[in-house]
Simulated scan of single mutants.
Amino acid sequence: MKKVMIVFMALTMLLPLAGCGGSSTASGSSAAGSSTAQPSSETSEAPVSKSSSDTGSEEQSSSSSQGTSDAEAEGETSQQTPSSSQPQDSATNILVAYFSATGNTEGIAAELQNLLQADLYQIIPQVPYTQEDLNYSEDECRANQEQNDPSARPAISESLENMDDYDVIFLGYPIWWGQAPKIISTFLESYDFSGKVIVPFCTSGSSGIGSSASNLHDLAPDAQWMDGQRFSGSASGDEIQQWVNGLELEYEGFPAGL
Rank of each mutant, 00 (worst) to 15 (best):
T68R: 14
D89Y: 07
E111Y: 10
S23Y: 15
S52L: 11
A97Y: 00
S236V: 02
F187T: 07
A73L: 11
G107F: 10
P150C: 09
S78A: 11
I169D: 00
A256V: 15
G22Q: 14
A18V: 12
S65L: 10
D70N: 08
P39F: 03
P255S: 11
E132G: 11
L188G: 04
T43D: 14
M9I: 11
E161D: 10
V244W: 02
P82T: 03
D139E: 15
N215I: 13
Q86T: 07
A155G: 05
L116V: 03
Q242S: 13
M5Y: 13
I123H: 02
A235F: 01
N144W: 08
A97D: 00
A32K: 13
F193V: 10
E248W: 09
L134R: 04
A26N: 05
Y129Q: 04
F254P: 03
F254N: 03
P181V: 07
A101W: 00
I240Y: 02
S212Q: 08
A37E: 06
A10E: 10
Q38E: 08
S41R: 14
Q88P: 04
F8D: 04
L216P: 00
E146H: 09
S27H: 14
P128F: 13
L15E: 10
A213W: 01
Q147L: 11
T12R: 05
Y166Q: 03
N114H: 13
S69T: 13
D139G: 12
S84G: 06
L11T: 13
E42T: 09
N215K: 13
C202Q: 03
S49F: 06
A180V: 05
